[in-house]
Nucleic acid binder design. Structure first.
Length: 118
DNA sequence: ATTTGCTCAGCTC
DNA sequence: GAGCTGAGCAAAT
């Protein structure tokens, strides 16, 4: 069980390595067929959404870390350095996420924080 | 729908 | 150390 304190910025103090591990871990917690947002992850870790994007782009293991399940907070796809957003969209559709035009159906967007309550 | 300002880790010089 | 580049966000236009 992972417990993090949102408003304390604990990972900022913990160092970059911890930061990377935490982002990857949270990303891997996203259930298949659902997506979450950069903002959601950032809020939990006490960092800025931009930083989450940086970490995922730097992602050394695109296979084991399903970074395609992380999208922008407005529902649009965001970016994907592993084949472009076309591929990202297709991956999501394969997993059962409905995509309307260039945006993900809000019905499929969850707050990753809810996944930590278990 | 588009523009503007804020943000910060990483890269280059 | 200074400056630019992004897988973002929110508010204003």
């Amino acid at each position: 069980m992972l417990v993090l304190e949102p408003d304390k910025g604990i990972l900022r103090k913990a160092g970059k390595k911890e930061l990377y591990e935490a982002v990857y871990l949270l990303t891997m917690l996203i259930p298949i067929g659902k997506v979450t947002t950069y903002k959601s992850i950032a809020k939990i870790l006490g960092i800025h959404p931009r930083t989450v994007g940086i970490v995922l782009k730097k992602n050394s293991k695109p296979i084991i870390v399903p970074c395609h399940r992380v999208i922008s907070s407005n529902g649009s796809i965001g970016g994907y350095s592993w084949g472009g957003k076309n591929v990202k969209k297709k991956l999501l559709e394969i997993e059962g996420v409905r995509i309307i035009g260039e945006k993900v159906d809000p019905e499929y967007i969850i707050d990753i924080g809810e996944q930590l309550i278990s």
